[in-house]
Design a protein around this nucleic acid. Structure first.
Lengths: 243, 243
DNA sequence: GCTTGGCAAGAGCACTGCTCTCATTTGTTG
DNA sequence: CAACAAATGAGAGCAGTGCTCTTGCCAAGC
């Protein structure tokens, strides 16, 4: 591997990439019909016409395969969410962008339940997600933050919901998140910590709601999940001051 | 089994119950050190000194064992939550009861992460929790509802957060939940649907927050999870009008 | 040319859930 | 009490799993 062949890939390299992609796609297909726990490396090997040991040339372990699937799913969700936001023509309609983004999250989750479970359900082998996943994993929350920040910078935001009297200022415990928002461009607002607090809460509510729906915890309470979710998103927008 | 021997149990029945409990406890112990996916029926059989096939006399399948663990965990969480609520001496301090209940939920989850993942993570056996689980599963939300209903009935509640202007009344999509709350004793309030809406949202936020913490999604944003969670619970109480 | 290294295949290990058979124990009934 | 039936435990066995190791093969580089 000493030769500087960075631009033209040899046939072997091409083949390797293609087979890697083929394995990944077969694994995604299998994941679509069963849970992450049922994903069998031998089965995907059969699907691509290989013997199980050959797959280990491409993925050193089943968990590595799962990690690759994780990244692919995160990216797909992130792309869907970003596309939904950018599909809103009026960039100053922050409520419209917010609801479109939220709805895209749920839509993707409902149409890819197993992928969603892989991302936001229980961590599968109890393993820690590698560094490679944090980038794709943050695309949704980053986009949500951008919308909120944009609304406040444009001056088209009202006031964030006022916390109860006995509550403390959330400066310390979410300092990292505050710093993240501040470096995103905001803001003359002095209520940034409270906005960040409400952003984290809204984020948790969105995915908590989707998880509750997909995992069956709302079965006896909610009948129309789609409009219920939309109403939740609207109220979160209101709490954030986007109303 | 025709004899009406309901009161005095035969030695065999006693032994059966004892061994069943022993298997369950061994399984819980194993679950405490690994995820649900790693729970091996053969391993728990070894732990209790049996051969794997003998365990099938007590649990017809691994998933049935998991279901039993599910019920046990739901009950343990429910008992912890109810005890926390009842530990608040001033029954009219609804905010205190609310925060104590929320905190008990998180405390139990943090000290039983694998049990929590079993309950609120991705459904393990693929899907469809049996009917036996719905009772224990509702203990937490039932208690939360009781506190909220109690506050409104006692007149010590303010107003629920007002929804944004373009939002719809949530009468239809959460009709079952509304009926549940109404038969719980509330209420002269005309804003019951909105209260129910906010209750469902608060419920989703609580468990969404706990899941995010345990599953690592808040890792870069929140530093002090305990006080963060308390602040979340306080704001939810405020949104519900308990402030 | 020959050598090196990536690659697929196969055998094999230790493990899993689960089924079946067999012997033994236990409870009930004639 | 004896006989029968039900419940129980042990063991073997099947099909499947993740993963390792060895064996050949074929293309890439000297």
């Amino acid at each position: 591997m000493t030769t500087a062949r960075s631009t033209t890939r040899t046939a072997r390299e091409r083949a390797r990439d293609e087979i890697t992609a083929e394995i990944l796609s077969a694994a995604r297909a299998r994941l679509r019909e069963a849970g992450p726990g049922e994903l069998s490396l031998r089965a995907v090997a059969r699907d691509v016409g290989m013997v199980s040991s050959a797959v280990y040339r491409y993925f050193p372990s089943r968990d590595e395969l799962l990690t690759a699937l994780l990244i692919a799913a995160y990216d797909e969700l992130g792309a869907a969410v970003e596309a939904a936001d950018e599909g809103v023509p009026d960039r100053a309609d922050f409520i419209g962008r917010w609801t479109a983004t939220c709805r895209a999250t749920r839509d993707w989750a409902v149409s890819h339940p197993h992928d969603y479970a892989l991302l936001y359900g229980s961590p599968v082998p109890g393993y820690a997600a590698p560094r490679d996943t944090v980038g794709p994993a943050t695309r949704v929350i980053v986009r949500l933050v951008e919308i909120i920040v944009g609304a406040y910078e444009a001056g088209s935001a009202g006031a964030v919901a006022t916390p109860p009297s006995r509550s403390a200022a959330p400066d310390q415990m979410v300092a990292d998140a505050i710093a993240f928002v501040r470096e995103r461009g905001v803001v003359s607002e002095q209520s940034v910590p409270e906005i960040v607090m409400r952003t984290l809460m809204a984020w948790s509510t969105l995915f908590g709601t989707v998880s509750f729906e997909l995992f069956g915890h709302l079965k006896g309470s909610v009948s129309d999940f789609e409009t219920y979710f939309d109403q939740v998103a609207l109220r979160l927008a209101g709490d954030l001051g986007l109303a």
